[in-house]
Nucleic acid binder design. Structure first.
Lengths: 150, 150
DNA sequence: TATTGTTATACTCTATAACTATA
DNA sequence: TATAGTTATAGAGTATAACAATA
């Protein structure tokens, strides 16, 4: 297997690895004192974007990229702690409507603000030139991911 | 709270989010049929870099960024499945020496090759110009992470 | 005393398969 | 039959606190 002899590829791979490791360490440092875990935030964030209109369990699961049973279990815990409410829908008795409580909304907003602050701090640490290219490169990489297994 | 009115910052944040989401989806797609999970690979990779010289549990835990009990539990499972061996050290009877079996070495190498192939594919999907800036940007971002909470 | 590792305990995240209730 | 959700079951990853053995 002809492996990375291309120095440009080698540099890319090394930088990518460093980036992934740094991001992982950073996540570990941020999470412990947060009210929500990353997975919980990913599950609930759509409720914020939906202007707090209640959404179905399947909808949340799909958006977060987890299975329905996983979402059920997560919502179990979040409902117990008063982060969300879960009610049977009146019009379709199979469905449930999940909504944020006031506390839940505050927690999700706080997490979002925390994420934004971190990205802002990263941005601030870049040189003006790097700032310009960073957004472009990250967008291209995201697109490349999708193309790879499409 | 004065949030992202800077359009350049807004673009950066959006691209960063897209990238994180794409990477998460990609990981979910790659892991199911892999012999090792990401966490297991992170724990065992140093053994490959150490030329298969046995390492201590604490050493592996620290490198992987997990607690010692977590590493113990992970090694329990990996030893049961024949991925690693765990032996009390002769010179320091408190310590254990963890080493890859032949199967384990193959699994770690295979995982590394899988990661490399994915990065190579990403690299290939970039334009020549983006390739040049990608390595630089990722390296700068990794450095920025470290500076943020240093 | 300090270090290395393990046990005890407890939670979260995760999935597949099987099930219930409703449409 | 198809859809929404839950339960049953199982396993990995994670941590803190308490402990044992050795240095």
């Amino acid at each position: 297997m002809p492996t990375a002899t291309d120095p440009q590829l080698a540099a890319f791979v090394a930088a990518f690895d460093d980036f992934v490791r740094a991001a992982k360490r950073a996540r570990a440092r941020v999470e412990p004192d947060a009210a929500l875990t990353t997975s919980q935030y990913d599950l609930l964030a759509p409720l914020l974007d939906a202007d707090d209109a209640p959404l179905g369990l399947r909808e949340l699961a799909r958006a977060a990229g987890v299975s329905a049973p996983t979402a059920t279990r997560m919502i179990d815990g979040l409902a117990l702690r008063g982060t969300v409410t879960r009610e049977r829908a009146a019009d379709d008795r199979r469905a449930v409507r999940i909504a944020l409580t006031a506390d839940g909304r505050a927690a999700v907003l706080e997490h979002r603000e925390r994420l934004l602050a971190r990205r802002r701090a990263l941005f601030d640490h870049l040189s003006p030139g790097d700032r310009r290219s960073a957004a472009k490169v990250l967008a291209r990489l995201a697109a490349a991911y999708e193309e790879i297994d499409a």
